[in-house]
Simulated assay, not measured.
Amino acid sequence: MGQLSNFTFAFCGAVALSGAAYAQQFSGAATLGYSHSSISNGGGDVNSWTLDAVGDLAFSNNMTLGMVGSFANIDPDGAGDLDAMDLGLDLRYQFTNGARLGAYVDYASLNPSPGGSIDLTSYGVMGGYEADRFNIDLHVGVTDTSPTIAPGLDWVDFGLNVGYDVSDNTRLAGHYIVSNLSVGGGDVNLTSFGIAADHHFGQGWSAYGGLSWFDIDVVNIEMVSASVGVGYDMSQVVNVPVQLSLELARNTVNASGGGFATDMDTIRVGVTMPLGQNTRAIPQNSAAAKIMRPRHNAASTALSMAF
C-alpha cells in the first residue's frame, strides 16, 4: 500500500505542476440543491442542502485534471445534523491511439453532530480508452480509514466505468465497483452497480434517470435506487446560463438476514450553472450524475446517491 500511495501522490503532484503552464480549456458544472426525503415505517423526514461540482482542466500536453466536490448538510428529524464532504482529483494522460493512463485521490468525510468524523481516503491508478462516442475506464486502488475500522484492515477497490454517446443529445453511462475489506482472515465485499441516461429534447428541456444497486454481502444488506428527473435551461427565456431541475427518487433498503425493509422517497430540486466550455450539464445533485461519474470506492459512491 505504501508504494502505491507514494506513486499516486507523486504522479498527481509532479504532472500537475509540470502541466500548469499548458492550461488550454476548462469545462464543468456546479449545482446548488435541496432535497426532502420521507422514510417509511415511521422513519421520519430528512432535509438536505447540497453543493456539487465537477470539472475537467485540459492541458495542451494531452494531460487532463479531473475534479469533483460535494458538500451536504443532512438534517434528519429528531436527530443531530450530518455534514458530508467528498473531494476527488484524477490526472490522466491521453495517448494518440485513444488509450489513457492516470492516477486518482479521493477524500470523503462524514461528520455527525455531535460526534467525531469518519474519513475515507482512496488512491490508486487508472487506465482506459476513449473513442469519439465511447469511453471505458478501469481503476484499482486502496482506501484508508480514520479512525481505523479494525486493526490490520486491508481495503482494496476495483472499478469499471463505461460511457456511450448514443447521439449528440443522448448519453448512457454506468459503473461497477467492488470494495474488498479483509481483516483477520475474513472478507467483506461492498458492491455498487449503476446505469444512467441523460437526454436533451431541445427548446431547453432535458430528462435524466438512473438505476443503482449497493450490497454488503456478509450481512445481506442491499440498497436499490431508482430516479427520474427533468431539467429546463433558463437561457431560453432570459440571458442567464442557469438550469433548473426536479428529480424524484426512491431508495429501498433490505436486510434479508433480519427481515427488515424500508423505503426512502426523495424530491430533489437544483440550480445548475455550466462552467467553462460547457453550455449545458446534467444536474450534479442528481443520482444519475453520481452514477455516471462515481467515486473510486463503493461506500462513498452509495452515500453520494442517497441524499
Rank of each mutant, 00 (worst) to 15 (best):
G2S: 15
L4N: 11
T8N: 05
G13E: 12
A16D: 09
A16I: 14
G19K: 12
A20D: 13
A30K: 02
L32E: 01
L32Q: 02
L32C: 12
H36N: 13
S37V: 03
N41S: 13
N41I: 11
G43T: 10
V46E: 02
N47L: 02
N47Q: 06
A53D: 03
L57Y: 11
M63P: 08
G66D: 07
G69L: 07
S70I: 13
F71A: 11
P76M: 07
A79D: 10
M85D: 04
M85Y: 13
G102E: 00
A103H: 07
A103R: 05
D106I: 10
L110D: 09
G115V: 10
G128K: 04
F134D: 00
V142S: 12
A150V: 14
P151N: 05
G152A: 14
L160M: 07
N161K: 07
V162L: 08
V166H: 03
S167P: 07
T170E: 06
L172F: 14
A173F: 12
A173Q: 06
G174M: 03
H175G: 00
S179G: 11
D187E: 14
V188F: 04
N189D: 15
S192Q: 05
H199Q: 11
H200N: 14
Q203V: 10
G204Q: 05
W205F: 15
L211G: 14
F214N: 09
V219N: 04
I221Q: 03
E222S: 14
M223P: 03
V224H: 11
M234G: 01
S235V: 06
N239Q: 08
N239A: 13
Q243L: 15
S245L: 05
L246Q: 05
E247D: 12
T252R: 08
V253R: 00
A255K: 01
S256F: 03
T262I: 07
T262N: 01
D263I: 05
D265T: 15
R268N: 11
M273D: 00
P274D: 00
L275V: 10
N285G: 11
S286Q: 05
S286M: 09
K290C: 10
R293C: 00
M305K: 03
